[in-house]
């Protein structure tokens, strides 16, 4: 609620996120849309507790990030484009390590590993060093890593970047399945066409401020535009001038 983040850059005070408030209910996919520098990634990082908000707070499943960071982190699975893999570990070692970090017992961890290996088709390379994997394979391992503890909340930051059509489909299918399971999903993406397909509601961010929020019909009615791309271009005329802060 009222999440705000200011930081200094080159001696200047930059407002990355400006009093941002939104809520996502279980079983809902929320699309956080915006140009580079709109504050999408910064928002996701504040929700997870990786960045401390200048003011305001984020709450997950009744736990505030600032007060119970570990409770919040254990309930979130974060897929980030900037997240890497441990080069010298195999996907199996890496996934079991993170299962352990999230407090899964050995038996549950093994079951979870088997399940996600099957789901993301990791089996052919599960015992190869991560350094030798292709971009798509790495992204799939990364997805499995962030979901290994089966969190009730998913934060996806550009989840399909670097993936081919087949790889992207796996993500969309998983998001759809996660919604059915009652998980809350927040997706930050540039790919508005894809967002339209699987998000229930949208928040259009521009320079840290929430310009529009609602379901697609609500947004269409509010803006008079038919597609998200149109709305995006209409509501953000200065797109491109505010360079990425996230």
């Amino acid at each position: 609620m009222e999440l705000t983040k200011r930081f200094s850059s080159g001696g200047q005070d930059v407002l990355a996120v400006d009093r941002l408030s939104f809520a996502v209910v279980p079983g809902e996919a929320y699309g956080l849309l915006g140009a580079n520098g709109a504050g999408k990634t910064t928002t996701l990082r504040m929700i997870l507790g990786l960045l401390e908000p200048t003011s305001g707070y984020a709450e997950v499943d009744g736990f505030r990030t600032s007060e119970s960071p570990d409770e919040v982190k254990s309930r979130i699975g974060m897929v980030s484009t900037s997240a890497g893999l441990y080069q010298w570990l195999t996907p199996r070692e890496l996934l079991l390590f993170f299962a352990d970090v999230y407090g899964l017992d050995d038996d549950t961890a093994q079951k979870s590993l088997d399940r996600f290996s099957q789901l993301f088709d990791l089996t052919p390379f599960i015992d190869r060093r991560c350094a030798s994997l292709s971009t798509g394979q790495k992204q799939r391992v990364n997805l499995a890593r962030s979901m290994i503890h089966d969190p009730p909340v998913l934060l996806l930051d550009e989840p399909t970047r670097g993936l081919d059509v087949v790889g992207s489909k796996v993500i969309f299918d998983y998001i759809a399945a996660a919604k059915k399971q009652g998980k809350s999903v927040i997706v930050s993406t540039h790919r508005l066409d894809e967002a339209e397909r699987f998000c229930d509601r949208f928040g259009l961010l521009h320079r840290g401020r929430l310009m529009h929020e609602g379901t697609l019909p609500e947004l269409q009615s509010a803006t008079g535009c038919t597609s998200l791309t149109e709305m995006f271009l209409q509501s953000m005329p200065l797109c491109g001038q505010g360079e990425d802060a996230a």
Binding site: D70, E71, S74, R75, Y102, G103, L104, D105, T108, K111, S112, R115, Q118, L119, F120, D121, H149, D150, P151, P152, V166, K169, V170, D173, Y174, A177, K180, Q181
Partner: peptide, 21 residues
């Protein structure tokens, strides 16, 4: 890719934050 979609969910609360010394 696997066709077995969606997989059975794990009991969420059970897998959260087991106490580790």
């Amino acid at each position: 890719m696997s066709d077995q979609f969606p997989p059975p969910p794990l009991p969420v609360k059970q897998s959260l934050r087991a106490e580790v010394r």
